[in-house]
């Protein structure tokens, strides 16, 4: 539990941080540190330098901009969990935060850190993916907006380019006729998702107009269960159609297992069960 030697930088502006990343191409960006620091202590990660974002003003906070809820990258889970704006406009995010990590993790861990880390078993990647958000990043070439569907590209890999810093996530507010739920099957040791499924359902006249379903834990990175989404699209929403759609959830997903707790076969089963439960709960929450 003793990391290798590294340099530590604490810039006070985004420009300074971007410069530091340009000067130290192997440097890692430090947000809440609850994934990076343990990996460094086990010497699984040995970055020569850390660029800590905590002293940069303006990177945290939650605000409403038109029909988007904007959450700064350095906003902690705790701030999301307790935000009235989040409860009002994207309630699933506040509710789901209850099952993220533990109190310490929620006090330190950040929204941007979770997304940029793209942990295969992280909760937020699946939730933000299902919510159809977009991500803003600043880099040497300036600012750009990345649709969340293009953001997660692999295990611990995102569309962020070297030297780019994720600055905020923009989530469409949930209007009338939409409901969402995140269902998580936690690992008994790590409390990471063995499988987690977030479902967002839009309903009109009891017909499913839109369904976005994202899976974490079972896959290498947060991935949409498109076969299930399509199966539900245009269907009357009831227990039978939801069950039928959920059965198809694993289609097209690359599901992986482990040798201690949950095999690929079992996780595939859980993807079906949790998709059904998430859809049922999402429909229940439509307002």
């Amino acid at each position: 539990m003793f990391p290798a030697t590294f340099e530590y930088y604490a810039p006070t502006s985004l420009e300074e941080a971007l410069n530091l990343l340009r000067q130290n191409p192997e440097a890692k960006v430090l947000a809440g540190g609850h994934s990076l620091i343990p990996a460094m202590k086990l010497r699984l990660a040995t970055p020569p330098a850390l660029v800590d974002l905590r002293r940069i003003p303006g990177l945290s906070g939650i605000r409403l901009e038109g029909d988007q809820l904007v959450i700064g990258a350095m906003t902690t889970y705790y701030d999301v969990q307790t935000s009235e704006l989040v409860r009002q406009h994207v309630p699933v995010l506040a509710e789901a935060t209850d099952v993220v990590g533990d109190l310490q993790v929620r006090n330190w861990g950040t929204v941007g850190g979770s997304l940029a880390h793209s942990d295969p078993a992280g909760d937020y990647p699946a939730i933000i993916l299902a919510l159809g958000a977009e991500v803003r990043a600043r880099g040497p070439q300036g600012e750009r907006t990345i649709p969340i569907d293009q953001f997660f590209v692999g295990m611990f890999t995102t569309a962020l380019q070297p030297g780019e810093i994720l600055t905020e996530v923009r989530i469409p507010v949930m209007g009338p006729g939409t409901g969402a739920a995140y269902v998580k099957f936690p690992h008994p040791a790590s409390r990471y998702a063995v499988v987690g499924v977030c479902a967002v359902v839009g309903r009109e006249d009891n017909i499913c107009r839109q369904a976005r379903i994202a899976v974490t834990g079972a896959t290498l990175y947060a991935t949409r269960a498109t076969a299930a989404e399509q199966a539900l699209q245009g269907q009357t929403l009831n227990a039978d159609t939801i069950r039928a759609a959920a059965e198809r959830a694993p289609e097209g997903l690359t599901i992986t297992g482990d040798r201690v707790f949950a095999s690929e076969e079992y996780r595939t089963h859980l993807v079906r069960v949790l998709t059904r439960r998430a859809l049922m709960a999402a429909v229940e929450k439509i307002r």
Binding site: H187, A189, S190, R259, V260
Partner: peptide
């Protein structure tokens, strides 16, 4: 848990479930 080669698969409390 060990694998057949004797590698420890539960080497941290992320895997060993207290």
């Amino acid at each position: 848990v060990y694998d057949e080669q004797g590698n420890l698969l539960t080497g941290t409390w992320l895997d060993y479930a207290m």
